[in-house]
Amino acid sequence: MTFANQLTLLRIVLIPLFVVIFYLPVPWAHITCAIIFAVAAITDWLDGYVARKYNQSTAFGAFLDPVADKLMVAIALLLLVSLHHDSAWFVAAAAVIVGREIIISALREWMAELGQRASVAVSFIGKIKTTLQMIAIIVLLMDRQEWYLMEIGYIALAGAAALTLWSMVIYLRAASPFFSTSATKK
């Protein structure tokens, strides 16, 4: 078990703690969740850096890293929807982000079966989207009433949702030449 894989597993282990703390009836619950999510976001960057720098890339890590990322983000967005359920655009933005992750994960798996995984590799737009998404989730998890913090969170979430759609279109266009190919594995 490499250090990079341990960092990825840490993100998954943090998820139940994150959920339990979110629902604790204590004043520090949401700020603690924001800190846990920030730690998870940092380990997301750090595990990739460690894997590349110290040649710790593994097949297990390549599988587990995106799973850990998507689980943490989807669960955080679901929890945030429970706080912002009265805001239709917030619920829609969260649905767009989670829905896109499911679509692109399936697309990447399918493209890998065709031997074309590189056609749908992570793009620069995806990295910007992820950064905005992390900022939005961290700020909104704090659940502070200072107007400027909530506005920063809402703007970052709206930007992440827009880039989510844009990057999905780019990925689907890159894969479109393969949509008419046979379903048999190559």
Rank of each mutant, 00 (worst) to 15 (best):
V96K: 07
I128A: 10
I125M: 12
V169N: 12
A93W: 04
A121I: 04
L157M: 10
K129V: 10
W89K: 02
A161T: 13
A162W: 11
L157F: 11
L172I: 09
L163K: 13
A93F: 14
S105V: 02
W89E: 14
D143E: 11
L141F: 15
R100F: 08
A94Y: 00
I138S: 02
L79Q: 02
A93H: 07
Y148H: 08
A174T: 00
L172Q: 13
L80R: 03
A160H: 04
G115V: 06
L140T: 09
S87I: 06
M142T: 12
Y154L: 14
A160G: 14
A162V: 15
E101Q: 11
E101I: 10
S123C: 05
Q116K: 03
A175F: 10
Y154S: 06
V139P: 03
L149I: 13
Q133G: 11
A160L: 07
G126Q: 04
I137D: 06
I102G: 07
S87G: 08
I128E: 00
A106W: 14
I102H: 09
I128D: 04
L172T: 07
G126D: 02
Q133K: 10
Q116S: 01
G126I: 00
M111T: 01
R173A: 01
H85P: 00
D86L: 08
G99Y: 11
E113A: 12
A136W: 09
G126M: 01
L140D: 13
Q133Y: 02
L107K: 00
G126R: 07
I137P: 10
R173N: 05
S176V: 14
L132Q: 05
G99A: 04
M111E: 03
M111G: 03
Q116G: 02
I170G: 14
A158P: 05
M142A: 15
V122R: 03
Q145F: 12
L149V: 12
M134I: 06
Y148F: 13
W166I: 15
L114Y: 02
